[in-house]
Amino acid sequence: MSQPLSILQCNDVTVEFDGFKAIQGMSLTLAKGELRFLIGPNGAGKTTMLDVICGKVRPSTGQVTFNGDIDITRKKEHQIAELGIGRKFQAPSIFPSMTVLENLEIALRQRRGVFATLFARLQAEEQKRMKRQLEMIGLADQEDSRAGGLSHGEKQWLEIGMMLLQEPDILLLDEPVAGMTDKETDKTGELLQEIARERSIVVVEHDMEFVRSFASKVTVMHEGKLLKEGTMEDVQRDDRVAEVYLGKRRDADASRSTA
């Protein structure tokens, strides 16, 4: 069944909340090393789709398989994270009372059992990786600051840095540039380009300008269903997409919604 080059396969996923179908028979296949944008109007089920993949929400029907043959539909969040699927929520969720460095330390790819962490020593190699990550996210001079005191953009980068140290095979990002200034958005874009070279990424995004700056595949969702999949040009040319989504906000700036 499994296609050798796909890392994630969602087949006919349906999610119901008290009778309301947030997702109806959605399928999605992600190739290794692919950067995929998930777009669609509010309430289309984009975030719920990410929730299904990372285990936060259990689908009522359908199947999600990771790396060919691992069924993750019934696994717990921490097990899915351990398998190599990292999730970044829309609001920055770092650990505010801990320092930047401490945040990175617990995110590091490592054995996460109680005894492993009780006796863990920070290895020189780990320290090097953390330093490199700090450089990449531009927080090198703030490693001992409390994460709660960082600016909004810095928190987002810290969280991206944490996710990268987890070394996931798939990154799920929910509106990573929401609430960022233009400068911060550009920097985040560069970060994403760099990250995308090594791993598969799914990005839920409202900012069309931002999406357009990447030449990659776009999946459009509408009312819990797949509407269209293709390049940004294909998608923009599609009548149905224009009708439900782009038609209403052809102007790029108007779509900079933070929802």
Partner: peptide
Amino acid sequence: RAIRDGENRVRFIGY
């Protein structure tokens, strides 16, 4: 301490 700050986030890191 991370659990104190955000239990859910800890879960999505893999703990």
